[in-house]
Design a protein around this nucleic acid. Structure first.
Length: 571
RNA sequence: CGGGGCGUAGCGCAGUUUGGUAGCGCGCACGGUUCGGGUCCGUGAGGUCGCCAGUUCGAAUCUGGCCGCCCCGACCA
């Protein structure tokens, strides 16, 4: 492709509303443009990256035995009403009415639609297993789109669904997809972790996320530095606390101490001259309309996924300050379990403290020498999040905590949708059985941004070879006829070998071209000008390396062959 | 939805406090200059000042309402 002909609007300055690295760079380098909040156009370069990601996905899913379909994005409400998700999805669903006033929506995900297809077309155990996928635009009215292409209201997703005769077979399908996903993310060149995840409202018995490591990630992951244990912090297991020794000294009676205006754990610990881990952190939650006091150790954080599970609650949120005052008699900073009348749950580590400090349920006061069992009663559960340095549940080595961006998620769904929608088959005994399903997503458009989040520097993007819009960025220096001709011949030779080349044939100064080349981020940059031509060399500079190399240009076919080889080797 | 911020030329911004001719840089067009890391000089085109209403002789500026966008939190690929 010739730069002069391409739509490649680079910007010197970042649009002011872009903040994340990928958002800034994808706009500056002319890959995408904003149309509305969370709605973007893909410009030619962006679309090429998208297509490259799609190609890898198609190849690997094909290898895994999945078949591609394309379901509609415009959906009559009947299907979601059938499973209750018409209500469940709430405001996240983009709803519309047709001219007759019938309810429609734009598809946020397609379990219902694919399950409808399955129940119509799959009747016998002989028809199973089936694994169907599509790559399609999805619509979710996100409460808060952010980060450019990272979280959009309209986005491109690969969603796959497996149908099997049994839980066991479904697990095999799931396993195949896990392998396929690993191959996909490997080929994308990303640093990622497959982590255990919350299966959430989907139910089901298994779930893993593919998290791409990035400082800007919204998710926190716990990963072992020794073994392959990795889990979303939402579900990572905290190690069981060491139980207090039998010869634990007896604890004096609780004593009220004055702690004026010391509200946070940090303030109270500093004020009393003790470690944060000697305190109990007491938070009041509203769980399905009921108030519950949740107690964790001062240096720990409440894990709301674990809490919701422990309480069997479907809705969970911190109680409003007013509710806290009504329930405890004091402002939020001074809540504590001693004398609290309502339900109390306590984390295992907090429970292991035999001589603790907690809020006194009275303004500006805390209690010391508090002991579970003697001074208050509470239900015991694992309620805290893992933190850096905690012991790995599978090998005991210290865990690290990382930030990641969720780029893929695989679920074992079980019969949640098939039983609701009557997607069943006749087994060998002629018995009607619900199909056992799995579902598997990859945020394709998100992956564009995710890759940039992971691979960028002060000058621009650094694409992995596998998805770069062009593998080679050929900078033409000067417009002498011999240079123009040499560039054209090198371009032709490379393209004949299957290498995609972007030729910067603009009448610009070299500095401008180099700046744009760095910004655009193709993995290999070739520079050819009069000087090099006279010496019979072309300069080669991998984007990820500091120093350029010289490649002998003659004979040209050989030079192109060596360069193409380097492209195939991944740069 | 709660909290914070922003809307002036394609992009980045000043001007708003104290109402009076709409400005700067980049980009764009033209001429010259330069030519291996965003060259320099000159000329020029380009603006419903987010929208509506109000106050006023006069509104980018003051008042009210609305809309849009971004960031931080509860959700998710």
């Amino acid at each position: 492709m010739r730069y002069q002909r391409a739509l490649l609007p680079t910007l010197k300055e970042a649009p002011s509303d872009a903040t994340s690295a990928s958002h800034v760079l994808l706009l500056r380098a002319g890959y995408a443009r904003r149309v509305g909040a969370g709605i973007y156009s893909y410009l030619p370069l962006g679309l090429k990256v998208l297509r490259n990601i799609e190609r890898i996905i198609r190849e690997e899913l094909g290898r895994a035995g999945a078949e591609e379909v394309l379901l509609p994005a415009l959906l009559p409400s009947d299907y979601f009403k059938e499973t209750g998700r018409w209500e469940l999805f709430g405001d996240n669903l983009l709803r519309l009415k047709d001219r007759k006033g019938s309810d429609y929506h734009l598809g946020p995900t397609h379990e219902e639609i694919i399950t409808d297809l399955a129940r119509r077309e799959l009747k016998s155990y002989r028809d199973l297993p089936k694994n169907l996928y599509q790559i399609q635009t999805k619509f979710r009215d996100e409460p808060r789109p952010r980060g450019g292409l990272l979280r959009c209201r309209e986005f491109i997703m690969k969603d796959a669904y497996s149908f099997d005769v049994s839980e066991e077979r479904a697990r095999e399908s799931y396993e195949k997809m896990r392998v396929a996903y690993t191959r996909i993310f490997d080929r994308l060149g990303l640093d990622y972790r497959m982590v255990r995840a919350d299966s959430g409202a989907m139910g089901g018995s298994g779930s893993a996320e593919f998290q791409v490591l990035a400082q800007s990630g919204e998710d926190l992951l716990a990963a072992c530095r020794q073994c392959d244990y990795a889990a979303n912090l939402e579900v990572a297991s905290a190690p069981a606390p060491t139980p207090p020794g039998p010869e634990a000294p007896s604890v004096p009676a609780p004593e009220k101490v004055l702690t004026p205006k010391q509200k946070t754990i940090g303030e109270v610990a500093a004020f009393l001259g003790v470690a944060e881990r000697a305190l109990l952190k007491s938070l009041v939650y509203r769980a399905d309309q009921q108030l519950v006091m949740v107690v964790v150790r001062g240096d720990h954080e409440v894990n709301e996924v674990k809490l919701a599970r422990a309480l069997g609650a479907s809705e969970l949120a911190l109680a409003a300050p007013g509710d806290v005052v009504r329930a405890t008699g004091a402002a939020p900073g001074f809540a504590g379990p001693v004398g609290y009348a309502g339900k109390i749950v306590i984390d295992r580590d907090a429970a292991a403290l035999s001589d603790a400090i907690c809020g006194a349920n009275e303004a500006d006061h805390h209690l010391r020498h508090v002991q579970l069992g003697r001074d208050f009663q509470a239900e015991l559960a694992e309620l805290r999040s893992v933190k850096e340095g905690d012991a790995c549940p599978s090998c005991g080595a210290p865990l690290g905590v990382f930030r990641g961006i969720e780029a893929g998620h695989i679920f074992l769904l079980g019969t949640h949708y098939s039983s609701k929608m009557g997607a069943s088959f006749l087994d060998e005994q002629g018995q009607m059985q619900p199909m056992v399903m799995g579902c598997y997503g990859i945020g394709v458009s998100r992956l564009i941004a995710t890759t940039v989040e992971q691979f960028n520097d002060a000058d621009g993007i650094l694409w992995p070879m596998s998805i770069a819009p062009y593998q080679v960025h050929l900078v033409q220096l000067g417009a002498e006829p011999e240079v123009v001709e040499a560039v054209a011949r090198l371009e032709a030779e490379l393209e004949a070998l299957g290498v995609e080349v972007l030729v910067d044939d603009r009448e610009e100064r070299p500095g401008v071209k180099f700046k744009d080349a760095d910004l655009l981020g193709m993995p290999l940059r070739l520079t050819l000008g009069k000087r090099g031509l006279e010496q019979g060399v072309v300069e080669l500079k991998p984007r990820r390396e500091r120093d350029p190399k010289r490649v002998t240009l003659l004979p040209l076919a050989e030079a192109a062959g060596r360069l193409a080889e380097q492209v195939r080797a991944g740069g």
